[in-house]
Amino acid sequence: MILHPGIIGLLVGSVITLLMVFHAAVTGAIVLYRWDFSSSSQYQLSLERKTYLVSTLVNYGLAFQVASAVLFVYTVDDIHQLFVGAMCATGSLNANPIGWYALLSKIAVLFLSGFWLALNYVDSRLEESPYVKLKYGLLIGLFPFLVLDLILQFFYFLGLDPAIITSCCGSLFGGDSNSVASSVASVPVVPAMIVFYLLGAGLIFLSVAVLYFVSDLLRYLYAVLSASFFVVSIVAIISFVSIYIYELPTHHCPFDMLQRGYHFVGYPLYFTLFLAVYFGMLPGLFCPLKRNVGMNTILSKIERPWIYWCLGNTVLCMSLVTYTICFSNLTLFSD
């Protein structure tokens, strides 16, 4: 275990978040079992008031999660100096492979809690709160993910030993090992670019289509496309965006770009990507709930800003990628 300030901050923050969500989940469980909409008893009223507490707790919890994801990457990036062979976050993560799972679980928790908040937001806008039970059931389901996240994070930091000699992005994302990561990095640039731009364009096109047509099918497609855009973008970042940013044809690291030396360009890149994907998935995820008439009408109103957000962030993300390609000193294709 390394007593790095960032690690202590993360662990303290995660424990607090967990406690808050735990409180929310327990309250949620009580609401779940005692909720009776038709009752006008004082007890029902107190349950209703508790729902405000649950939303507040989860809101803060998610905000802390977003901040902790950033702090996690920042810390992991900073502690690379402690390991022989590590040049950036990749090296620190390799120093104890649980780190990769911790990172994945952080991403998963971000999306899941984001979806939950969207459901909560929509449901609380309906007079009869039709999804209270679903909502609190899901909240209880969300809790184990947070626990898992904390456990992974804890064991990752616990298992870090500065004596470890690790390998860094050079070998992980280099061509000559046969891990998943290196095969991602060795995805040839041209096909990766084509797929990235095609999918991005598809997402923009679908956003507009979804704005004008009410079809459910379109929305499901939109969600699937958004999710694929996430995967494809990550592949694209490792495969070609990175080398344009670093201006080195062999440097495929997805974390270095978060460092000051590269003007923190990674942050807007990842933020826009996450937002685009998140908002792109929402309309499709809410389609099954449209059978409720009230939900249907309210969704058609709330959906629009979601689509705008997805559209805007997709455009921003793609512009950023295009910008780095155009203004990079690296030229892969000479004309």
């Binding site: 202590i8 993360l10 923050g13 901040a67 920042y74």
Partner: peptide
Amino acid sequence: VLHIFTMFFL
């Protein structure tokens, strides 16, 4: 920056 961020968390 990391330290300021950490302090925020703590």
